[in-house]
Design a binder for these strands. Sequence first.
DNA 1: AATCAAAGTGTATTATTGACACAATTGTAG
DNA 2: CTACAATTGTGTCAATAATACACTTTGATT
Lengths: 253, 253
Amino acid sequence: MLTKKELKAYCATARENYLPHISIDCVVFGFHEGEMKVLILKVKNEEAWYLPGGFVLKQEPIEMAASRILKERTGLEKIFLQQFHVFGDPERSKQHFDMYKDMLPAKENWFSNRFLTIGYYALVDFVETNPTPDELSATCLWRGLDDLPEFRLDHALILKTALDTLRLQLHYQPIGYNLMPKEFTMPELQKLYETILDKKLDRRNFQRRMLGFGILKRSDHQRKGGAHKAPFLYSFDLENYEAALKEGFKGGW
Amino acid sequence: MLTKKELKAYCATARENYLPHISIDCVVFGFHEGEMKVLILKVKNEEAWYLPGGFVLKQEPIEMAASRILKERTGLEKIFLQQFHVFGDPERSKQHFDMYKDMLPAKENWFSNRFLTIGYYALVDFVETNPTPDELSATCLWRGLDDLPEFRLDHALILKTALDTLRLQLHYQPIGYNLMPKEFTMPELQKLYETILDKKLDRRNFQRRMLGFGILKRSDHQRKGGAHKAPFLYSFDLENYEAALKEGFKGGW
DNA sequence: AATCAAAGTGTATTATTGACACAATTGTAG
DNA sequence: CTACAATTGTGTCAATAATACACTTTGATT
């Protein structure tokens, strides 16, 4: 929670630069050590958790706003971003409204606004990411999907909706290029799929299917150093991958 | 195009009642005589075509705004509505901005706003629909997909995106309940699918597949009066249909 | 050198999809 | 009132895709 002075400064900047009534919230997925992770923020001096978010500059395309916000939180550019839903319940930002309503008159109080938020989900390479809190937050960190805190506002709903969308898309789109490092083994990729879908898959059938899509290139070297048989390394065939993104996998009909 | 006086009144009402910077545009699909139709509007005294749209009341959920707008345009309630994308290019409403910029000072000119528009698509029963123009429009009517006029703003893009989304959804969701009359024949339903997908399907395989989904009930009577063999009538099994909507068709994986 | 754990590979079975043909029904034309 | 044309209903076979499952190979560990 902001002090009155902080609030006043914050609101003045916001009102000057951003579109009113509109925010962006991002669900950033990363994959590490066999677990699906989400990037979350904790507000200063308070046990309050949020998804990374922000506002849209008055003359900024919304995709650019999302990507700007994520650059600030992760250090990454050219993130895979997908708009998935607008949350427009008039009561959704009530917590913020109540928290700050007595501190500033409504006219200059940014949080007396009702906000529609545009949800984006992002898929990023965990190890490349450098989590960085914003000016309202004390920490920005990764959390496993099974170990999430309670969120403020409707951010739990936003997260759930993002996850549902991601799971749905997995059925007809290639996913992985943005979540995996450049080179990876087939079991690692399988683990990603198993994590997103939350179910076990057959090793042999998974491999056959993945290779069948034609979006993988097998590297000529293997990953040494593990305690067992050295697995082959793969990377994505960008050209075919992009094509599959556009076309979709299953023709259906 | 509005006269100065009309504009002034329009802007005053709008600023008083609606959220600024946000609009809703709807792509309303209907199916009639074997053709996919879209509901469109033509502005008064001008050859300018738009999709049905409107704004969000200050304390109104966005789904409710979309459904209110469509009730006004079609007379229908409980329309199948699906939010599919937000269009947020800062230049997207430039045509309106330019058209009205000299008529009113920016401060009180609703159209000097930049607008993000939330796209909804709707599936409705053609014969139940009663197309009704809004206060800016001279006519509201159905047009076949192959016979569309040029649209103002980015409404051609919005329509195309809606159609793409609908086609995609057809692969993993049941579609039809909202577009077909209560009772229909299998060939009629097939025609709907063929129209949406824009390709011919095999009659026998279509029937097998549709029945396989378990969302259809065969009625005990047939449609008489046609010049040929009387086809059976079907209706949707609401319960299974709703379940399929939630679950999706193809488990995949 | 033996062992263990994980990785690579293949095959038989089953389910799903796609292609295709013939019989039944109805109104119309002769 | 019969033959015809158009359309609907239904079944089968082949190809393809999905699933289940087992053995062999490899590399580090002891």
